[in-house]
Simulated assay, not measured.
Amino acid sequence: MRIDMNDLSAFVAVAQAKGFREASRASGMSPSSLSEAVRRLETRLGTRLFHRTTRSVAPTEAGARLLDRLAPALTEVFASLDTVSALGDAPSGTLRLNVPVNVARLILPGIVTPFLALHPRIRLEVTAETDLVDIVAAGCDAGIRYEERLAQDMIAIPIGPRRQRFATAAAPAYLDRMGRPRHPRELLDHACLGSGSANGVAHAWTFEREGELVKIDPSGPLVVRSGAAFDLAVDAAIAGLGVISIFEDWLRPHLDSGALEPILEPWWQEFSGPFLYFSGSRLVPAPLRAFIDFIKGERDIR
């Protein structure tokens, strides 16, 4: 059975956009052209692919099954074409990344600007969120996460600093008033500016020194539920509201200026840096390949 690839692409566009007008805006094809393409495909297959009403468009059971198999296949086809075209031309297209908030704030700024300057035909879309997501289901080309959160079937490449630390600090005025803790457990008597996940689970603070591991559950007047809100906690710490524990790079400007004073530094826990990861079961699109090569080149320079 011969079926036009454009008709298949039109079907996927309508199914993913959940409507002909919405698919038109995303694909650049007119609603009438999309409708005609879907009609041709239904005729060739001998089955209806969409339930259509004046208010909604939804795949039939046959349409849903076709979409499940066809969408990944078309992604592979277009990635293959991108890979071939990139051999003779500068890489172009959209690169979609899903990253933690701290990576978007602390690591990507030093990478994104020179990368896009080197590849002006690439458009970068970055989604920053704390929770781990299925990058394939989310329509992302790659993600950035830390080692303990990487799935086993992903290819991972180091990006950014290879060692990082959590730093603990407070405003000098607060420490003058409340005292300077000499052991992590003394933080239980301090106002701590904590953080937690979106589902309400509080993050414990972990300290380590000479093989001794100490975890405490911080308690205090402020808890932030998203990495994007860490700046609020930092401002509160500078204002003297309490003790904060966060990525050292996030606090470094304030530690250097004296606005915050480091405490318990011998106990600061060190951990490995983040990784760029992507599915090993699909061809690498040209924009992602260019990003990987750029990261590897940056690492070689260091």
Results as ranks from 00 to 15, higher is better:
residue 123 R to K: 14
residue 190 H to T: 04
residue 134 D to S: 10
residue 190 H to D: 09
residue 167 A to R: 14
residue 164 Q to T: 03
residue 214 V to N: 03
residue 207 F to L: 08
residue 106 L to A: 14
residue 138 A to M: 14
residue 161 P to R: 14
residue 165 R to C: 15
residue 196 G to A: 14
residue 148 E to R: 09
residue 222 L to C: 14
residue 110 G to P: 00
residue 196 G to K: 05
residue 137 A to V: 05
residue 183 H to S: 10
residue 209 R to L: 14
residue 186 E to I: 01
residue 218 P to K: 07
residue 133 V to F: 15
residue 146 Y to S: 01
residue 146 Y to M: 10
residue 98 N to Y: 15
residue 168 T to H: 07
residue 213 L to C: 01
residue 108 L to W: 13
residue 207 F to R: 06
residue 108 L to V: 10
residue 165 R to K: 15
residue 150 L to W: 13
residue 226 S to F: 04
residue 161 P to C: 10
residue 223 V to G: 09
residue 225 R to K: 11
residue 177 R to L: 02
residue 123 R to V: 11
residue 135 I to A: 07
residue 109 P to M: 04
residue 163 R to G: 13
residue 181 P to M: 05
residue 203 H to V: 09
residue 167 A to E: 07
residue 184 P to Q: 03
residue 154 M to V: 08
residue 181 P to C: 02
residue 210 E to A: 15
residue 132 L to R: 04
residue 205 W to Y: 09
residue 204 A to P: 00
residue 96 R to E: 05
residue 151 A to C: 08
residue 143 G to T: 08
residue 115 F to C: 07
residue 96 R to D: 01
residue 120 P to N: 10
residue 206 T to E: 10
residue 146 Y to F: 14
residue 170 A to F: 01
residue 192 C to I: 03
residue 113 T to N: 07
residue 177 R to M: 01
residue 176 D to M: 09
residue 111 I to L: 15
residue 165 R to A: 15
residue 194 G to M: 02
residue 179 G to Y: 00
residue 117 A to F: 11
residue 200 G to D: 01
residue 221 P to W: 06
residue 151 A to Y: 13
residue 136 V to G: 01
residue 98 N to E: 06
residue 217 D to V: 03
residue 223 V to T: 10
residue 181 P to Q: 01
residue 111 I to T: 09
residue 226 S to R: 12
residue 158 P to K: 05
residue 174 Y to L: 12
residue 159 I to S: 03
residue 146 Y to P: 00
residue 176 D to A: 12
residue 191 A to C: 02
residue 136 V to M: 05
residue 176 D to P: 00
residue 134 D to I: 08
residue 190 H to G: 06
residue 145 R to K: 02
residue 102 N to R: 05
residue 201 V to M: 06
residue 187 L to D: 03
residue 187 L to N: 04
residue 216 I to N: 03
residue 225 R to E: 13
residue 228 A to V: 10
residue 172 P to E: 03
residue 224 V to T: 10
residue 125 E to L: 14
residue 230 F to K: 14
residue 173 A to N: 04
residue 126 V to W: 04
residue 223 V to I: 08
residue 190 H to C: 05
residue 213 L to S: 00
residue 110 G to H: 11
residue 149 R to A: 15
residue 206 T to G: 08
residue 140 C to P: 00
residue 107 I to V: 15
residue 202 A to V: 12
residue 177 R to N: 06
residue 180 R to A: 11
residue 152 Q to N: 06
residue 187 L to R: 03
residue 122 I to N: 11
residue 145 R to G: 07
residue 178 M to I: 02
residue 200 G to F: 07
residue 152 Q to E: 14
residue 186 E to Y: 05
residue 157 I to E: 08
residue 142 A to F: 02
residue 197 S to D: 15
residue 183 H to P: 01
residue 184 P to I: 07
residue 226 S to M: 02
